[in-house]
Amino acid sequence: MSLHRKLSYSLAINEALHQVMSMDPSVFLIGQGVKSPWYVGNTARGLIEEFGENRVIDTPVSENGITGAAVGAAIAGMKPVVVHPRIDFMMYAMDPIINEAANWFYMNGGRANVPVVFWGIINRRGEQAAQHSQALHALFAHIPGLKVVMPATAHDAKGLMVAAIQDPNPVVFVDERLLYGLEGPVPQEIYHVEIGKGCLRRQGKDVTIVAVSLMVHEAIKATQELIDDDIDAEVIDLRTIKPLDRELIIHSVNKTGRLVVVDVGWRSFGISGEIAALVAEASFETLKAPILRVALPDCPAPASVMLENGYYPSARDIVQAVRRIM
């Protein structure tokens, strides 16, 4: 039965690429490392063998030019997936992503859409320091014209990659290297996870924890510990950060009256503040306590593992935040 089939997060992405590429000849993959397992793990496994170097294109180190080329190919009717093995490298490509791709459809009065996927991988930890560990998703979510998805499970990694490729507009797909080995049920057949829809990972009545990507797993761990305190926490996995699943969040907070938002990114001007604002605007009167944020301190990623341990929040920080508002 398909339901019991398990796959790792990275192989789920790989399966999505295989399936979409065999269904649709306009889809192609371009970026650094797609021909070598050394770089993008096994997400590109077997693609070059199956689809050839014409549609699986390893590139020189030229993020700006290559990303722009992907955008241009999309305008010309293809469906490129452009991968950046670290989202930090994608900063060279801000112009084609933001000025061009995001705005193209609107500023041309809807005459041409840009069906491109910008895939950037977060690589936190490993004493890699400030330029190799950043979680930059919120930058993209700030831009009108970009959708941003961040799968937390193998199932959603596949379903959101399929949805991102099939979407007629630019989608930023942000995954996390630390999740690559995580296994979970993944149906064999092709399916998509709707962009803009979060999901409940755990039902509870006392507090809502909204989390994203890697932090969804920490949030779930936290709920186990909270049970000992008799706190019944609800966990929302955002899956998409732009557009946000407002209904799901508000419905949950209306029920629990308490909210803790957990992000993989920095605290200031990030998605945690956005969600807090959304709830404050939409259901201020249902709140029984202040909204708290669990996020990275406003500090570049340090190298030393001692500093990393204090830098990255974990289930313990979520538990503490919840306790503070109960």
Binding site: V61, D88, F89, M91, Y92, E127, Q128, A129, A130, Q131, H132, P300, P302, A303, S304, M306, L307
Partner: peptide, 26 residues
């Protein structure tokens, strides 16, 4: 770099080494 930078962020302005960084061409 006081343990904040690691192998890829080496600097010593006193000898004219103004820094290193792994963003290619950065």
């Amino acid at each position: 770099s006081r343990g904040r930078g690691g192998s890829m962020h080496l600097i010593d302005p006193t000898v004219g080494m103004l820094g290193s960084a792994p963003i290619v061409a950065g």
